[in-house]
Every structure is written in C-alpha cells, then in structure tokens.
Design a protein around this nucleic acid. Structure first.
Length: 152
DNA sequence: GCCAACGTTGGC
DNA sequence: GCCAACGTTGGC
C-alpha cells in the first residue's frame, strides 16, 4: 500500500464536503499539473491511503484520511466548457487529464497544521514542507505517514 | 531548444 | 492583497 497527500482549498472542496457525498466518495477532479496527473494515472492504487490537506485557508494543514477507491480514469470536467476546469486541449478520445476516486475514512481529532509539520525534523524530506513545492498531490512514505499520525 | 512573458499556487 | 516560486506557453 502506498501513502499520499492531496491538497484542496476548503472553500472549494473541504473534508466536510467529502463526508456529504453519496457513499462519502468523490472524484478528485481539476488537477491540471502533469506530475500530479502522472501519479494519479500510474501510481495510485485502490486501497492507498491519502491525507486530506486544506490549503489556502486560515490554518493550512492535514485534516483527515481517505482511501483510493477507483484508479486513474479521464477527468471528464476537462471536456465541459461550462466547467471551471475546462481544458479545450483535452480531447475525449485522448484525455489529457486524469483523476481518481477517493472515499472518506476519518477526520483527525485536530488539524495538524503546516506550521507544526514544518517544525518536525522527521519531516524535512516531505515535499509539502520543502520550499517552493506547490504540487497538489505528493507521495508520503510509510515512516512519514506513521510519524504524522503520532502527532495527532 | 531557449527563454521571456505570463498565469497559478498558496503561505503569509 | 502581496509576492516568491514554479509551470506553461509561444516566438524565435
């Protein structure tokens, strides 16, 4: 099993929004970055665990856990001219963007803030805390995963 | 293939 | 709202 972290702006889609979805499952659409796309297309597998991270908000940080329940498939929002994430260059016959489905597992008892994560010597290799890293999806090692959960 | 211009991300 | 960092685009 692999571990991941995925960012979302809570005023766009928060962990509480995920909880409200049917089967507490939602497709993770709108990723328009090739590196992140490749991870969803090639590496994320059913059963993988994912931290839900709230970005661009009062207290950026990890707020919960979800799991991958459907592996990479075309992000259909790219085909919809009315969608915010419409990309005219993504051809349905040869989709440019991919997504996975994720299912809610749990909320953490508290937000583990970015500030706190940055203070941990154990996490200096975590992409999230590295300067200038803006990837919205990133891998987390098992060691990092377990350590982060030990902070809760 | 280089690189300047531009757009986006996201912390602060 | 600012702006640093980074990715993408497109002219050449």
């Amino acid at each position: 099993m692999n571990y991941w972290l995925m960012k979302s702006e809570p005023n766009e889609f928060s962990i509480d929004d995920l909880i409200k979805q049917p089967a507490q499952t939602e497709h993770w659409d709108g990723v328009r970055n090739y590196q992140a796309r490749n991870m969803m297309r090639d590496e994320m597998k059913i059963g993988d665990r994912v931290f839900f991270y709230h970005s661009n908000c009062d207290v950026p940080g990890i707020v919960g856990i979800m799991e991958v329940v459907k592996e990479g498939y075309p992000d259909f929002t790219a085909f919809d001219p009315d969608d915010k994430h419409f990309d005219p260059k993504s051809d349905p016959k040869q989709p440019r963007w991919m997504m996975v489905d994720v299912k809610f597992i749990k909320k953490l008892s508290r937000t583990i803030s970015l500030k706190e994560l940055k203070q941990q010597p154990e996490l200096t290799e975590l992409s999230l805390v590295r300067r200038g890293n803006r990837l919205s999806i990133m891998p987390v090692t098992k060691q990092q995963w377990d350590f982060i959960l030990s902070l809760e």
